[in-house]
Structures are given as C-alpha cells and as structure tokens.
Design a protein around this nucleic acid. Structure first.
Lengths: 233, 233
DNA sequence: CGGCTGCTTGATCGCTCTCAAATGGGGTGG
DNA sequence: CCACCCCATTTGAGAGCGATCAAGCAGCCG
C-alpha cells in the first residue's frame, strides 16, 4: 500500500495530518477509464466522490429527452454530493471523459467524518457554495446573453479549468464536441458549429474533431462582454 | 428579553436546547419593513441571515443593466450566505417584499458556531445543496423549455412556497409584478403579460396589480409538463 | 383629482431552432 | 497498411418564438 500523500485538496484544508489520514482511510478509491460512468442518472445514490485524476462530465436528461451538461469536474472537486442534501437518487450522470481516479465515501461515514472534523463540513460548504454561485452566473448568462457570448464565456471557463499551453494557443485538454458545448451553453450543436466556424476564419481559435485550441483569449473576452471591440483583420 | 423559543428551523435541527440557546445568543435580530433592503449588490458582505418572518426577494443586475430574480426567500431559509464561500461583496440585492424579521451573524462568529456545533455546518450544507439543485432545475428549464412552461412552473413553485387559500383559488401572498415574474423566468414583462392574459381568459388564474390567484393548479401542471392536455371550454 | 406606476396590446424584426443533406476525419478490422 | 464505416462536423434554407419598440389604459396613492 502506497504511503498516503497529503491530499492537496480544498476539502481537506486546515486538517491535521492525523485526521486527514483518518478520513482518507475511510475512503474507497474508484478508478474509471475514459468513457465509463461513475454513476448514472436515476441510480440510487450511495457514494460521494472527490476527483483526484482526470476529468468528469456531469450531465442531465430531461423527461422530454433534452440533454444538458451541468459542468465539468476537475481536480479536487466534489461530485455526486446529492447525498448530502437528502437525495435518494443521482439526478445526473457522471461520465469519465478521460482516465480518472476518485476517492469515495458513503453517506453515513462522510457524515460521521464531518461531525468529528467540522472543518470538513465547513470546507464542503464552501465548495458547494462556490458551485452555487457558478451556477447562478451561468443562469444569468442564459437569461440575458446571446448564444455567441455564452459560448465565449464557456470556452474561457474551460480554458481556466483545463487549459494546456500548446504551440499557437491554449488547448482544452479533454475531448469536447460541438454537441457538448451546445449542451453546456443551452443551444444546439448547429449554432455552436456556425459560431466556431466564424471564429476559426477570424483566426481566434483552431479546432478539430472534439478538440479546440484558443489562440486569442483576449478577443474571446471582448465577445463575451459584448464589447464589439474585436475587429478581425 | 423574551424567552427563546426553540427555532423550528432546519438550520438548527438536531441541536440540543442549550447549544441552540448559545447560537441564538450570538445572533442579532434584524427587522426590515416592506420595501427596504437587507443589503444591496456590491455592499461588503458582513453578515448572513436566516429569515424568521416575511418574504425577501434576491435579485441581481448584470453589467448591461439586465435584472434577474434569483429567488424568493421564505421562512427558515438562509440568505446572504456568500460569506461562507469567500465572497467579499454581496453578489445580489435582498429586498423585503413584505415586513420581515431575520436573524443575522457575522462571518467569524458563524464559523465559530459551526466549529463548535458541526451539526449546523451539516445542516447549512444541506440547505445550500438544495438551493443548488433548485438552481440547476431552473437552469435546465431555461435551457430546454418555452416561456409558457417556465412561467407555469414558476407560479407553481411560488404557490407551494407562499400560497394562501382564498375564495376561488390560491393567492401568492406577496406583491408580484409581471416584471418580477419575467425576471424570475428569464423573459420580459410583455411576454408574461400576454401569457397571463390568455390564462385569465381561460379561467385558469385571476390577476390584478402585483397580485395573482391560481384557480386551477392542475391545469398549470399540464402546461408546465407540456402535456397539451389542457382544453379550455 | 392628477400623476405615477404597472399592465395591456399591437406590429415588426431578428436570433436561433429545426429540418435536411453533404462532407470529412479517425479509428478499427481485415 | 489500407479501406471502410461511423460519427462529428459543416452548411443551407426556412420558420417561429419571443424580444423590442411603441402607444394607450387603468388602478392606486398622495
């Protein structure tokens, strides 16, 4: 068994080494290879997860069959935490979009941990709270902005979250289709495709099959803020 | 000083009487009459609140001046909890839409309480988590449903949250303008007005200046679910 | 009673969805 | 290594929902 490395994860901030060890001892590591699901919408919720490695897509399907992407989970983020607020089933599907590893706890033991180490509950509150404000921001965008702005913002967020410097710009380091981007921004793959085509012609981005490189993030900001100040040559 | 009644509030569930007393002793009661604000967007965030009496509207304004209504706060709900996740300023305005009274704590003392009584942090986590799932649900609606459905759902939620039986139906017991409903559902007062006019002609609702009575909630459900099954005579 | 604020209603415009079809890249199996 | 097939993407045409612009109307409060 490998020695337990101090998890540089916000959920565990301000914990003493010994309590951290205690908490991690109660966790079960869950690996998932790319393309497999941690859980699916409708499954009974048994565990909550923290992502240690890889990237996870959280998506929801409506009764009418519309899909939306709730978010992409990165390192150290919680997912499947519906347990914490009384959910019996997962309201969404968590899909590994790259090879992943997560730590998981079941409800009872996580609650026990929070009671023993209140700091965990406080940190969790902080994480969930940030997610809430992020969601509100996206809600506001959806309610008040046009598609182009929303797509620009989504790309900028993804760059911040999962951007990797490459020649010519910043690559989003996991497979991202037009469909995904559409479901993330509340539009259709068609509209996304059109928008990206324009941007590609203007040299703003470079894109391929499930791959996007942002060449001029600054210009994207102009579009997101609707400054009209971006003048392609 | 009046004797402290056990607060029948979810944040305090499973607390012993003495700890409850301790927590409430640290709180400062804040009354606000109808029309006044608890705080405004951009104010430095100093306190978080729990509503004991009345109804509070949380709304946000974008840089371009678009307004949205984030939610209406009812009895026992938290608001202004941006403090808990690292906000320096309130991201929204909290307006009393009826005469209100809230309890408030400043950040430091609330954190101290959570450390002393982990149950509070766990309960807060539950409350914030539920808000998150509510927000996600609304996001999904906005992304996938037409305006009419969204307005129907919004009204149904408001009925559940603040409905009062009156002759002929259920009244939403605080002033609610078309503009408010529009900002709550991501549309304009014009569109809301048109929709409500139709519903009123069909006898589904009865409405006046900042006042709405739902006569046939069941029909509204049909509309919300897009069942088309509602056939006015 | 007058003015203000909220509500109604009409007309038009345009963003974005929908439907349809063609194109192309990449991975897999032979 | 190559060919094929599938899936992602592109692009066009058209329609429609809902925003925007523009008046006019009606409660309500001072």
């Amino acid at each position: 068994m490998p020695p337990i490395i101090v998890e540089n994860v916000r959920l565990f901030q301000s914990l003493t080494a010994s309590s951290l060890q205690d908490v991690i001892a109660a966790a079960e590591p869950v690996p998932r290879e790319k393309g497999r699901a941690f859980f699916r919408q409708g499954d009974t919720a048994r565990k909550l997860f923290i992502l240690r490695q890889g990237r996870v897509k959280i998506s929801q399907t409506t009764a009418e069959g519309h899909q939306i992407v709730v978010r992409y989970v990165g390192f150290g983020e919680l997912f499947g935490c519906v347990l914490l607020y009384g959910g019996r089933e997962y309201p969404a599907t968590a899909l590994a979009v790259s090879d992943c590893e997560a730590l998981s706890w079941d409800h009872a033991s996580f609650v026990k941990m929070m009671e023993r180490y209140p700091r965990i509950a406080i940190n969790a509150l902080e994480l969930v709270g940030e997610e809430l404000s992020g969601m509100r921001a996206r809600y506001q965008e959806l309610a008040t902005e046009r598609v182009e702005q929303r797509v620009a913002r989504a790309l900028l967020r993804l760059v911040r979250q999962a951007g990797k410097k490459v020649e010519g710009g910043v690559l989003i380091e996991f497979p991202l289709s037009r469909q995904d981007l559409g479901e993330l921004t509340g539009t259709t793959l068609h509209t996304v495709s059109r928008i990206l085509s324009v941007w590609e012609n203007e040299g703003l981005i470079q894109s391929g099959r499930k791959k996007i490189i942002i060449c001029h993030p600054h210009e994207l900001v102009s579009i997101a803020e609707d400054l009209e100040a971006h003048h392609p040559k």
